[in-house]
Nucleic acid binder design. Sequence first.
DNA 1: AGGCGCTTGTGAAGAGGTGCACAAATCGCG
DNA 2: CGCGATTTGTGCACCTCTTCACAAGCGCCT
Lengths: 245, 245
Amino acid sequence: MSQHRHPGAPGRAGAVPALPDLPEATVARLPEYLRALHALADTGHETVSSEGLANAAGVNSAKLRKDLSHLGSYGTRGVGYDVTLLIEQIESVLGLTQCRSVALVGVGNLGHALAGYDGFASRGFRIAALFDADPSRVGEEINGLVVRHVDDLARVAVEESISIGVIATPAPAAQAVADQLVAVGVTSILNFAPCVLSVPEGVDVRKVDLAIELQILSFHEHRKASLTALPGGLAATDTQEAIGT
Amino acid sequence: MSQHRHPGAPGRAGAVPALPDLPEATVARLPEYLRALHALADTGHETVSSEGLANAAGVNSAKLRKDLSHLGSYGTRGVGYDVTLLIEQIESVLGLTQCRSVALVGVGNLGHALAGYDGFASRGFRIAALFDADPSRVGEEINGLVVRHVDDLARVAVEESISIGVIATPAPAAQAVADQLVAVGVTSILNFAPCVLSVPEGVDVRKVDLAIELQILSFHEHRKASLTALPGGLAATDTQEAIGT
DNA sequence: AGGCGCTTGTGAAGAGGTGCACAAATCGCG
DNA sequence: CGCGATTTGTGCACCTCTTCACAAGCGCCT
Ligand SMILES: NC(=O)c1ccc[n+]([C@@H]2O[C@H](COP(=O)([O-])OP(=O)(O)OC[C@H]3O[C@@H](n4cnc5c(N)ncnc54)[C@H](O)[C@@H]3O)[C@@H](O)[C@H]2O)c1
Ligand SMILES: NC(=O)c1ccc[n+]([C@@H]2O[C@H](COP(=O)([O-])OP(=O)(O)OC[C@H]3O[C@@H](n4cnc5c(N)ncnc54)[C@H](O)[C@@H]3O)[C@@H](O)[C@H]2O)c1
C-alpha cells in the first residue's frame, strides 16, 4: 500500500540494477564489511576469505557468507573474495556509486562537530549545505561552507540536489525541521534529537540517541553487577534455561 | 549492535534482586519509553494507556505491553499505567537509580561536543573526566572539567569510580584506548571510532558510526529511486519505514 | 449490585535472523 | 590428470522478535 511519488523525479527506466530486496539486518552490516574491505585494500590485500573478512568486521563468518550471497556469487571457492570487486558490488547495492549530498540543519554544539568531520566525504557523502535558525549563526563559515538560514532550505535543497537531511537541532524544533525537509522532497533523515519524528510513508528516519546507548550499557552494567554479587554454583557453561510455558 | 556473549546461565538463579532477564530488543526500547514517560510527566499526565505511550515512543502498542510485562504487572486494566511508578520501575531495571560516571577519551572535534552536552546529566549520567593524548589539549577546561592526560586514566578512573568509557579518538588509537579502559576495570564502552574493538568477555561495546547510518539511508534512497523508476504492477509492496535502531 | 466499556497481559502463530554443518566448486601440486 | 586442501554457498534447525486476537480484570455508571 505504498504510493510514493518523487516530486520532479525523472522517469529513468534503467533496467540494469537487479536490486535484490535484501534483509534489513544484512543492509545494516554491509557498511561494516565495506569499511573492512577498504582497510584490506589499503594494506595491499587482493583477496580475502569469509573468515578473514568476518574477523575484520566483527561478525560470524557464516553470517557474512549468507549476507554476501544475497548480492550474488562474487566469491571463488577455494580462494575467497576479490576485494576490489566486492567493494564495487557493495557500493553499487548501497547506492554509493553516486556521491550523495547531505544537508545539515542545526549548527550548534553537535552540528559543528559534524560539519567539521572529514569522515563523511571519504565514505561517499558530501555535506552540501548547513542551516540554522539563529541569525547570529547564519553567515558563519565552517570547513569552507557558509551557514544559511533555514528559510533558504527549499531553494538550496534543489540547487544542491540534497538527498539526505541531518537534524541536529534541539528536540522541540526537530519535528518542524523534519516537516520542512520532507516538504522540499527529502526522503531520508538522520535525527540526532532525542524525540520521535512523525513523517509520511515513504520517508525513512534513522535516529541516533547517545543517551539511549548509555542507558543500554547501564542496564548491562547493572546486570553484570548483580551476577557477580551472587556466588551460586558456577557449574561450567549451563546456557540452557527454558522459559516457555 | 554490540556483540553479546552468553555468560553462563543468566536465568533466575538469584532470588534476591529479582533480576528479570529481559530480551535484548526490549532493553533497547526501554530508554525510549523512559523519555516518553518523562515528557508525559512534565505535561501533567498521571496515567497513560499503552496506546498513548506506544504512540509517544513510536512503537506498536502490543509490543509495548509485552515489553512492560517483562518487568512485572505495573498497569491497571481499564486505566493504564501510572506514569511516575513506571518511570521508577524502568529506571530501576536499567540501573539508573545511581548516577553513573562516564569517562570521555579523545577531546577533539566530536569530544568537545559531547563534553559540552547537557543532555547526559539530565538522563542520569555524569561526565566525570576528560582525557586526551595531545599535551596541548591537556589542561583545557570544558564545561567545568579539566582535560587530563590519558596516562592518568588509571588513577582518575578509581577516584571517580568510572563505570562507562566513551571513545572519541581517531580509529587507529581506539583499540589502544579500549585496552587501557579495560585494564582499569571499565566493562562498558561506547565507541565512536569507525573500527571494530576487540575486548575480553564480559565487556560490552556499543558502537555509533554515523557514516554507517548514512549508508543505510543511502541504500533505501537507492531502492526507492529504483522502485519509482520501475512502474510494474506491484503496488502492494510494502515499504518499510522508520527503521529501529 | 450488576452490567458495560475500556485496557492490560498473554498465548499462539508467523516472520525474520543466526549459526552449524556439509556438499559443491576451485586451485595447486605431484 | 587426478587428488587433496581449501573455501564458498546454502539447507536446516533453532532461536528471537513481532503481531494478532482475546480473555481477564478494573472502574464507572445506573
Ligand atoms: N552535543 C552533543 O554531544 C549531543 C549528543 C547527543 C544528542 N544531542 C542532540 O543533538 C541536538 C543538538 O545538540 P547541540 O548540543 O548541538 O545543541 P545546540 O543548542 O548547541 O545547537 C542547536 C542548534 O540548532 C539551532 N536551531 C534551533 N532551532 C532551529 C530550527 N528550527 N531550525 C534550524 N536550526 C535551529 C540553534 O540555533 C542551535 O544552533 C539536540 O537535540 C541534542 O539533544 C547532542
Ligand atoms: N566529528 C564528528 O562529527 C564525527 C562523526 C562520526 C565519527 N567520528 C569519529 O569520532 C572520532 C573522533 O573524531 P574527531 O572529529 O573528534 O577527531 P579529532 O581528530 O578532532 O579528535 C581526536 C582527539 O583524540 C585525541 N587522541 C588521539 N589519540 C589519542 C589517544 N591514544 N588517547 C587519547 N586521546 C587521543 C587527539 O588528540 C584528538 O584530540 C573519530 O574516530 C571519528 O572518526 C567523528
